[in-house]
Computed example of a mutant assay.
Amino acid sequence: MNNDRRSFIGLLLAGTLTPLASACGREAAAKESFPFSLSETQWRKRLTQAEYRVLREEGTERAYSSPLNEEKRSGTYACAGCGNHAFSSRTKFESGTGWPSFYRPLKGGIGTDTDYKLGYPRTEVHCARCGGHLGHVFDDGPAPTGKRYCMNGVALDFIPGPA
């Protein structure tokens, strides 16, 4: 292994490059336009502090902290920022991770991007309407998709009714 590669790996493991990669990802996302847009002041007035941290600053809520993790009724899960319908209760499953999980989003509900916050690429999930950060998608979900859309409950609102 040469010194340049060893230095890069050392910086990566130390977390030095993670903020740089994260900032680059946020900059790219900020340039993308969405059908629903507000100023930062308007977002702060519209959202709770916890919602703002997750949806606008790409935070993650503590596992098992959301009541939506235990929600069993029929209905729709919508973006807490703009109300865009993102997931149906029909596709929700118990993943054992502590976050509401789904195997398929609703058509037009989400978008994805690459996130390097942990130093390696992950697929970030955001609202297709406002760009709010919802969570991540992984390839360890159930049939028929094999996907696990692991969402922050604070980023979603549950709307009871037909799914």
Rank of each mutant, 00 (worst) to 15 (best):
S7D: 14
A63D: 07
S95A: 07
A78Q: 10
A14F: 02
S39A: 06
E57A: 09
G15A: 04
A80H: 01
Q49I: 07
R6P: 00
T48P: 06
K31W: 05
K72Y: 06
C24D: 14
C82R: 05
G81H: 04
E94N: 13
E61I: 01
L11I: 00
R46N: 09
R56T: 02
A29Y: 14
R62G: 11
R6S: 13
L47N: 02
S39I: 01
F8R: 05
S74Q: 13
S33T: 15
S74V: 07
E51V: 03
R53I: 04
E57C: 09
A78L: 08
T76D: 11
L17R: 03
G83Q: 02
K45D: 13
K31N: 09
P19S: 10
N84T: 08
R46M: 03
C79E: 03
G59P: 04
C82V: 08
S39M: 04
W43N: 03
A21L: 15
L13V: 06
R90M: 09
L12M: 09
A80R: 01
N84K: 08
E51R: 08
L11C: 11
A21C: 12
E32H: 13
R26K: 09
P67C: 13
T60E: 04
H85R: 15
L20E: 14
G59N: 07
R26Q: 09
S33G: 12
S66K: 06
A30H: 13
Y77N: 02
E40I: 03
S88L: 03
L17G: 05
S66Y: 08
R73Y: 08
K72D: 11
A23C: 13
E40M: 03
A50I: 01
E71S: 06
R6Q: 14
K72T: 13
E40L: 02
S39H: 03
T41S: 15
S95I: 02
A80G: 04
S65H: 01
P35Q: 09
S33E: 14
N69L: 14
G75Q: 04
Q49A: 14
G25I: 14
R5H: 13
L38V: 03
Y64S: 07
K72M: 10
P67K: 14
F8W: 10
T60Y: 01
A78I: 09
S74N: 12
S74W: 07
Q42V: 00
C79D: 03
G15M: 04
T16G: 08
A63R: 07
R5W: 10
G25A: 15
A50S: 11
A29G: 14
G10Y: 01
E58Q: 15
Y64M: 10
L38I: 03
K72I: 06
T60C: 04
S65I: 01
K45E: 14
E71T: 07
R56W: 00
L17V: 09
T91K: 01
S33Q: 14
A28V: 12
K31P: 06
G75L: 05
A28L: 12
R73Q: 12
R6D: 13
N69A: 12
A86K: 05
T76L: 11
A63V: 04
E32P: 08
E71H: 06
K31Y: 05
C82M: 08
S39P: 02
F34I: 10
E51H: 05
T48A: 04
L55E: 08
R53D: 12
R90Q: 13
L20N: 11
S65M: 04
A14P: 01
